[in-house]
């Protein structure tokens, strides 16, 4: 029995030493909590915000910098990814189907093996296979909009024009979540057309009120060719008449529900007055 107690005390002492060392002998670092899924508010997104979102994703959720950093040498640096894209698409080793820079960058993220920068392939694959995972799947799981934000960031980083467009339709799952939320408090009515245009970021797509969007029709002299009824209809149901040379379905179908009647009429009056 005496031996038993001695051995017991000895063993408990040893365990105590190990536990004590782990608790007090080394610095206690609190691991980061599991990442929270970030909701994207694409409706009210300007290009600067979109680029900033891309930068956040690039450094955070996308975990890109884990490998794409200057110290590790695990993956190519991406400062000029957007500028070299067109050369890459001409390269004989290029396996993908992209024809624009945006498509190429998108493809490089979801299908990394389409083009492997020399020296960065999986060991033994002779640069035919990339060690990079498909970032739209699995643990990283970036959504389509998030990928586009990163493309915007990369284009900005390279100093080229940002040609990627801000996606307007949020993922259906997010839409569901939005309906489940309590209805937002009614906002105060805006009293100038300029404030309205800023609030609904019309200038992101249209050339209007000093802004120079190029996705939708130019509105600087819209009053000369279109009447109020046409303009009202275009705001309430954007796809009813689509201007020539532009795609249907680009403009969000939300203004009928988000603007008050007074605001709508004020905007229509303003646009009709642009001659």
């Amino acid at each position: 029995m005496r031996n038993f107690l001695k051995v017991l005390c000895f063993s408990l002492l040893v365990i105590g030493l190990f536990a004590g060392y782990s608790n007090y002998g080394i610095p206690q670092i609190e691991p980061a909590p599991p990442p929270v899924e970030e909701k994207l508010e694409l409706g009210a997104m300007t290009m600067d915000k979109f680029i900033a979102l891309g930068e956040r994703l690039y450094n955070g959720k996308g975990t890109c910098t884990l490998c794409h950093n200057p110290t590790g040498g695990r993956a190519p640096q991406l400062e000029s990814a957007a500028t070299v894209a067109s050369e890459r698409m001409q390269d004989s080793r290029y396996q993908g189907t992209a024809s624009t820079v945006v498509e190429y960058l998108y493809e490089s993220m979801v299908e990394p093996s389409a083009y492997v920068v020399a020296g960065f392939g999986k060991a033994g694959s002779n640069d035919s296979e990339s060690p990079m995972p498909d970032v739209s799947a699995g643990g990283i799981g970036l959504s389509d909009a998030e990928l586009k934000a990163i493309i915007a960031y990369l284009q900005d980083l390279a100093g080229t024009d940002v040609t990627v467009s801000i996606p307007t339709d949020a993922a259906p799952a997010e839409a569901e979540e939005k309906t489940a939320e309590p209805p937002p408090a009614p906002r105060a009515a805006l009293d100038t057309p300029d404030a309205l245009i800023a609030k609904f970021t019309c200038g992101a797509c249209h050339k209007v009120a000093g802004q120079v969007g190029a996705i939708g029709p130019d509105l600087t002299t819209i009053g000369a060719t279109r009447d109020k009824a046409y303009l009202r209809r275009s705001l309430l149901d954007p796809n009813a008449d689509v201007a020539e040379g532009f795609m249907a379905g680009m403009m969000p179908n939300i203004y009928g529900t988000q603007m008050s009647a007074a605001e709508l009429e004020m905007l229509v009056d303003y646009l009709a007055g642009l001659k």
Partner: peptide, 17 residues
Amino acid sequence: FTPGLGYAANVVSVGTI
């Protein structure tokens, strides 16, 4: 969440006992 080292060491110690 991923537990910190001290937390894990305590669970491991209890398990060992």
